[in-house]
Design a protein around this nucleic acid. Structure first.
Length: 273
DNA sequence: GAAGGCCTGGAA
DNA sequence: TTCCAGGCCTTC
């Protein structure tokens, strides 16, 4: 499940390897989800120089010459891997192949569940699809006060709100659960009833968790891999996510799993109030 | 704001 | 055989 730290890791690695290279060829298979017509992408991208790679929320953005931005969302199971032809030619889950000049192996987009998508935009913000244009702020780029204000009057469950990309960009199930644990907040709490102090503590916890996860190269649970095929290691440091029934690392009480808005939520009933 | 749908592989 | 995982979107 690529969330902010996983996409950030990928962006950093890819930038180092292919920034400044020319995209020589792109193959888009039939089942790939495209938010821009296939012909447009095939006509505009080849021959363009990649001038940079960035992350916005859970989106990866390839910036090309001529103010073209190529957006990749990995969905749940999307992967970007450097692979040799013989290693993917019979792979049914490969949906796109990108070739760069002077790079021997192509960059392959693999996605088992097909929740990932591609999109090509020009420089204007009006060309952005809503899913990108309406993204909330990056957690590390807002101040405590602004963060608290985002949630202050909200009546929904804090966990569900943290997953809302329009409010705050980049968190998914893993990092929402982990951050709430660190902040000592029960995922079912309603933010308008939380103190300002508590909201600020949550902001701190989110920033710390994300930063540590990036340092560990993200979490590799089911599908996430770095572009060279190696695994992240933050899964070894999860304190609640995927650990229902295990003892809490702080108080030894068994961790609980509940469902919140059709999503699982793991937490410690003793430490999180 | 809640719930269901898309999708597939793996577990129950 | 059914259910669950969860990115995001649509519908109620």
């Amino acid at each position: 499940m690529p969330e902010l730290p996983e996409v950030e890791t990928l962006a950093n690695e890819l930038r180092e390897k292919i920034s400044g290279r020319v995209l020589s060829k792109i193959i888009l298979k039939e089942k790939l989800i495209l938010k821009t017509p296939r012909e447009v992408i095939e006509k505009k991208l080849p021959g363009k120089k990649l001038v940079g790679i960035a992350r916005r929320g859970k989106f990866l953005r390839f910036d090309f010459d001529g103010a073209l931005a190529f957006w990749i969302h990995l969905g749940m199971t999307g992967q970007l891997l450097w692979l040799k032809e013989q290693d993917f030619k019979n792979d049914l889950h490969v949906h796109a192949i990108l070739f760069f000049e002077d790079i021997p192996e192509p960059l392959v987009f693999r996605d088992i569940r097909k929740f990932g998508s591609f999109c090509l935009t020009n420089g204007s913000s009006s060309s952005l699809p809503e899913g990108i244009r309406l993204l909330g702020p990056e957690p590390s780029e807002i101040k405590n006060e602004a963060f608290a204000n985002l949630f202050r009057h909200r009546k929904g469950r804090i966990k569900s709100l943290l997953l809302n990309q329009k409010l705050l960009a980049g968190l998914g199930n893993i990092y929402a659960d982990e951050s709430l644990f660190r902040a000592g907040i029960d995922p079912r709490r309603r933010p308008y009833r939380l103190s300002r102090q508590k909201l600020i503590a949550l902001h701190r916890a989110i920033c710390d968790t994300l930063q540590e996860a990036i340092r560990q190269g993200g979490s590799s649970i089911d599908d996430y891999l770095h572009a060279d095929g190696s695994r992240g290691s933050f899964q070894n440091f999860h304190r609640v996510y995927g650990r229902a029934g295990e003892p809490c690392s702080v108080c030894q009480a068994p961790l609980r799993q509940i469902r919140l808005a059709a999503r699982s939520a793991c937490f410690c009933p003793t430490c999180q109030k």
